[in-house]
Every structure is written in structure tokens, then in C-alpha cells.
Design a protein around this nucleic acid. Structure first.
Length: 582
RNA sequence: ACGCCCGUAGCUCAGCUGGAUAGAGCAGCGGUCUUCUAAACCGCAGGUCGCAGGUUCGAGUCCUGCCGGGCGUGCCA
């Protein structure tokens, strides 16, 4: 049951029946204060404004046309024209019973399902994954899981950087080292013998930035790559193999759902790039400027009437990520059948995506019924709110970060619960440590910058994954203590205030997931889970479960079980594990 | 210079298409373990929502201007 949706549709209908324009939204939201009941509808005031009538008069008419007697205890007009609704406890109990019987907690599957193509993680394979890749991977994975649970057909796309200048640079640098070694009659340098890809990249980049001759050699290697030089391609392939296996290790450690099957890198589109440019030309969108092939759209005109070009082919004939991204759009729509394309990419790429989408529309690569969504996130910042930059060193490798998180969590578990067997403690440490890292990121609105902090990330107090995991473990503890199986059956009766608060929270999962899916904002789910955990904690403090008399005992056991399942499900959608004890 | 984003409690942040007296978490202060895990719970304190105008029954939310910060802006991705 989706409480909000149910009220929204009924009240909107009543609004129309009362004379408001068709489609007037009821603007239903959870009540701002407990005194107002459970939910409130704010749409009457806006509709009254259009009708030029008094809001309270309209509210009277709406209520006259509204029959909520099956679910509402009271429906009241308050203030300037709010409609406040309080649910019947019996009705809430029924809804909970329905949810309890269902593996999916009575969350309906989307009808019809959409084919959602979601681009996330997408690291540059020329170097190791570092904390800068964390946000895209974590946020994208949570969105993929959530959309999938809602019944959509999700296609993950790991658009890895496996082509272009950076690989020319790496191959050129390796070639240079090889030449030097060979002249000294030393052992041949191969990719497989590189101890540290990150370090290798750093040195190559340094050469590239400081030595013009080397930069030119790198560009020459890019040309050789593009013209299909076997030797260079082979070297590149070796780099890729190492880098991809490293990425997969990180995904496995992180508990991301990405697999090698989801990898569809830049090079995949190589053959299509000339066609993209030719098709843009055929549409009359292509224009040469300073030797480069560009698309100029009026939408990107500045005040001086200059248009910011979207460059799709360089003056030397090479292609750019703009070209690749256009090819990817066509592939994702044409071949993968996407109805909705989502890009989880840092907000600094805002302008690029504005241009990309505009050009894709103009060239009719993306029909109107396909939604193109840029899901930006704020930067990863270090101490002093300064930006992380790979080239400047000091970057924390993702794997090291995860290991550190698990280690710290392990120490904490050992301290808080020394009696746990070591193997179980390791499992808990992993779930808590990785969960803490993910939750710290997901719980914040993705659009704001993210200040990386060991302390905050690993502090296991307050609004954190461990708080939720602890709430879950507490519920499970009740069942363990009572030597009960999970499938308790009976009636749920909501008598105590804490029970009622918990009940309404439990029933809000559906509308929460809809909101997450609509706006690609996982923090809404975090916020919900935190409220739910809080509601359970209050219930737990004031309502004894095992010691209660029947039928209250059974009722509370059912509430507890439903809470545990809701938390477990919610955390799973965020990619966070639960543990039975901690 | 232009474009986009941001500015909310001491700190880190929520605030859903404009809604009722702006909310959490840390940190601070004060209470709660012979009773289902105190990684918890309950309470107190803490605000000119950057500044100034405007739109209206109503603005943290929308519009304009300013101040402050970040990112981006033709051949890297």
C-alpha cells in the first residue's frame, strides 16, 4: 500500500468534483505535526486561488465529495484550508498484515516496467580506482538496486575509460622504458611486471606534462592505436586486463553489483564514431571551425552571440568523449532498448551533459519518449574542503580505504561485544565497515559536495549504517531470546502511541522508494530508514515484547518482524548488509 | 567575463512540485541499565535560513540585484 498515492488519487478526485480544475494536485504529505494527524493535503489553497473562492469553503466541498470512511478515523479542515487525515488503527493493522504476508512487503511492481540504462562507476582504466570513484559507484549501485526492486528492467553500463590519450601515454611510456632497458641489455619491461599501475600512470603523466617530445610521442601512439597497430593494441590490452581485474576486486569488496558483463567501455564505440559524425553532418548540424568538426546550437549562445561548440572531431581527425557519448546514447536506446538513460557522473560535467543531451535531441538520436537524465553528485573533498586531485598525490586508493574501514569496524566490534566468535566478528566488521562507508555517502543529498573524513565515515554513532544495523540486530535478538521462528501469525493491534508511530512509518516504504526512483536520490531512503529505526527504538523502550501478555505479545512480535524485514530490505537496496548480532 | 551549483544551529547536513510554530545527527548540559543488546532511549539549550528588495492568504523554497564560496567554459575525459 502506498499511503500517499492512495490519498492523493482520492482527494484529487474530490477536488475535481468540488469544482477545481481537472488534475488539480491534492499535495498530500505526511502531517507536519502529530496534532495534525497522520497525513495532510495542501492542495485546496492553490485550487481555491485559481477558482477565486475562499479556501475553507472549497475545503468543505472537497470533504463533502470525499469518502475516506474505510481508512480514516477523522478528516478535518484546519488553518487556512488544510485537510488533515488520521487513519483508523484497524485499517493500518490490515495494511500491515498484508505487507507481512508478502515477501516484497506489499510493494507493487512498476507497470509497465521501464528499461532503465544506468551509467555509473565508469573509472579510467589507466589508473587505479581511488576515492573519487566511490560516489558514482555507491550511488549508482543503490539506484540500480532500487529501480530493479521496483520492477524495472535495469541495464548497468560501466563506461570505463579504456581508450584515448591516456592509453597512448601509457603505451608510449612503457615503450620508452623498454628502449632504455634494451639498450642496457637489461630485462624487458612488460605490463605484467609493473608493481603498481597507479605509480606508473603518475610517472607517465609527469613526463607527458613536462616533456613536449614525450607528449608528441604519446599522441603518435594514440594514432597508432586508432589505426590498429597490433603491438600497441596488445600492450593496451595488457593494461586493461590488469586494471579490470583490479576494478572487479574493488566491486566485490565493496559489494557493488557490477560484473565484467556490465563493462562497456569507450573503445566499444570506436567503429561507430565516423558514423556519428557523418550522421550529424547529414542532419545539417555539423560545422567546421578552426579545423575541428563541431555542432553549434543556439541554446548555448552567450550574451555576445558566441556559441559554445560541441566538438565531435579534432583537427587531427581524432574523436573525443563527446563523440563517444553520442554513440553510447544511440547504442543504449537502439540496441539496449532504453526508455530511461541515467548518468551518475560528477557535477563538474554539468555543461557537457547539457550539450550532449541537446545535441542528441537535435540529431534525433534520442526520441522524445526516452528520458535522458543527468544525475550529478558533488565533489569528493579532502581536509580543508580542497579538491582531491590524483596528479597532486595524496590520493587514497579505494581498496586501502575499504580495508581501513573494515579494520576500524573490527576493533569497535571487538570492544563492544568481546564475546563474539572471531569468524562472526569478521563478518560483522565487514558489513559494518563497508556499510559505514556507503551510508556516509548515500545519506547525504548527492548534489552537495562530500567532505571525506575518516572520522565521520567511521564514526559509528548517530545517523549511520551501524545505527540501522544495530536496530536490526536488536529486533533479531528478540526472536533469538524467545526461541521463536520468524513466521509469527496473528492479529496486529495498535494501542500504544509508539506502536502507531511505528506502524505508519512501516507503511511509508512504498512512497519512499517511489521518491528515490523518481529523483534518483538515495538519501531519501536513508532518511526514511533512520526515522524507522528511531520509531522502532522508541517502541522497543516503551513496549515490552516477550514479556507482554497475549494477544499483545504476538501483535508486537509481528510489528518487530516487519520492522526487521523493512530495515533489511531498505539497507539491501542501498547495498548495505545486515547482521544478526553485533 | 560568462554559465551552472551552493550559502540553514558551534560543526556536518535534511527540508519532498511554495504551506501551519524551520528539523536531524554530532558536540554541550541533565536524566535512564536487578527487566527483549546503553553502538540505545528521554529531556534541555542552541536560528535575523548570506544580505536587500519583490511576487501572495502564505517564501528556507519562486523572481531581481548584491556579497561570499565551488565547479565549468573550443580540440583531456
Amino acid at each position: 500500500m502506498n499511503l500517499k498515492h492512495e490519498l492523493e488519487s482520492r482527494i484529487s478526485a474530490a477536488l475535481t468534483a468540488a469544482g477545481a480544475p481537472a488534475g488539480s494536485p491534492a499535495l498530500v504529505a505526511p502531517a507536519a505535526k502529530v496534532e495534525f494527524g497522520d497525513y495532510q493535503a495542501n492542495g485546496v489553497m492553490a485550487a481555491a486561488k485559481k477558482l477565486k473562492t475562499k479556501p475553507r469553503d472549497l475545503a468543505e466541498k472537497v470533504i463533502a465529495n470525499l469518502d475516506l470512511s474505510d481508512l480514516a478515523e477523522t478528516v478535518e479542515i484546519a488553518g487556512p484550508g488544510f485537510i488533515n487525515i488520521t487513519f483508523k488503527s484497524d485499517w493500518l493493522s490490515q495494511q500491515l498484515a498484508t505487507a507481512a504476508e508478502d515477501e516484497r512487503l506489499a510493494i507493487a511492481k512498476a507497470a509497465p516496467p521501464q528499461r532503465v540504462v544506468i551509467d555509473y562507476s565508469s573509472p579510467n582504466l589507466a589508473k587505479e580506482m581511488h576515492v573519487g570513484h566511490l560516489r558514482s559507484t555507491i550511488i549508482g549501485d543503490a539506484l540500480a538496486r532500487t529501480l530493479e526492486f521496483l520492477g524495472h528492467d535495469v541495464q548497468r553500463q560501466n563506461h570505463v575509460g579504456d581508450w584515448g590519450t591516456q592509453f597512448g601515454m601509457l603505451c608510449a611510456y612503457l615503450d620508452e622504458l623498454t628502449e632504455v632497458r634494451e639498450s642496457k641489455d637489461a630485462e624487458r619491461v612488460t605490463v605484467a611486471k609493473l608493481p603498481d599501475l597507479e605509480e606508473f600512470y603518475r610517472k607517465a603523466k609527469e613526463r607527458f606534462d613536462t616533456d613536449e617530445a614525450f607528449a608528441n610521442k604519446s599522441r603518435d601512439f594514440v594514432v597508432r592505436l586508432q589505426s590498429g597497430d597490433d603491438a600497441v593494441l596488445h600492450t593496451r590490452f595488457q593494461f586493461l586486463a590488469i586494471s579490470l581485474s583490479h576494478c572487479q576486486e574493488v566491486y566485490d569488496r565493496l559489494g557493488a553489483t557490477l560484473t565484467p558483463d556490465d563493462v562497456c567501455g569507450e573503445s566499444f564505440y570506436n567503429d561507430d564514431l565516423p558514423k556519428v559524425v557523418a550522421d550529424l553532418d547529414a542532419k545539417g548540424l555539423l560545422k567546421e571551425s578552426e579545423g575541428a568538426q563541431c555542432v553549434f546550437l543556439d541554446a548555448f549562445k552567450n550574451k555576445d552571440d558566441d556559441i559554445q561548440p560541441f566538438i565531435v572531431q579534432k583537427s587531427d581527425g581524432g574523436y573525443l568523449y563527446a563523440t563517444t557519448d553520442l554513440a553510447a546514447i544511440r547504442h543504449r536506446i537502439g540496441t539496449l532498448g532504453g526508455d530511461r538513460l541515467i548518468y551518475v557522473v560528477g557535477s563538474e560535467q554539468n555543461f557537457h551533459f547539457q550539450q550532449l543531451f541537446a545535441v542528441a535531441r537535435a540529431a534525433e538520436f534520442a526520441p522524445k519518449n526516452v528520458s535522458l537524465e543527468y544525475v550529478p553528485f558533488g565533489m569528493m573533498l579532502g581536509k580543508g574542503r580542497k579538491r582531491f586531485r590524483t596528479r597532486e598525490g595524496g590520493t587514497i586508493k579505494l581498496m586501502d580505504l575499504l580495508d581501513e574501514a573494515v579494520k576500524r569496524a573490527g576493533e569497535l566490534v571487538a570492544e563492544k561485544n568481546p564475546s563474539l566468535p572471531e569468524t562472526e566478528r569478521d563478518d560483522i566488521a565487514r558489513a559494518v565497515g563497508i556499510g559505514a562507508v556507503k551510508y556516509a555517502d548515500l545519506s547525504q543529498n548527492r548534489t552537495s559536495d562530500y567532505v571525506f573524513s575518516w572520522d565521520k565515515m567511521l564514526s559509528l554513532e548517530g545517523n549511520t549504517a551501524p545505527y540501522m544495523q544495530y536496530a536490526y540486530a536488536r529486533v533479531r535478538s528478540i526472536f533469538r531470546k524467545g526461541r521463536l521462528s520468524d513466521d509469527v501469525t496473528g492479529r496486529i493491534a495498535l494501542t500504544e502511541p509508539a506502536e502507531r508511530v511505528l506502524a505508519v512509518r512501516l507503511l511509508q516504504l512504498s512512497e519512499t522508494l517511489d521518491a528515490v526512483a523518481a529523483d534518483c536520490l538515495p538519501n531519501i531512503l536513508c532518511s526514511y530508514l533512520f526515522d524507522l529505526a528511531g520509531a522502532f527504538m522508541s517502541f522497543y523502550e516503551t513496549c515490552p515484547v516477550l514479556k507482554a501478555d497475549e494477544p499483545t505479545r504476538t501483535s508486537r512480535l509481528m510489528l518487530s518482524d516487519l520492522t526487521a524485514r523493512t530495515i533489511r530490505r531498505g539497507l539491501a537496496l542501498l547495498g548495505i548488509e545486515t547482521v544478526e548480532r553485533m
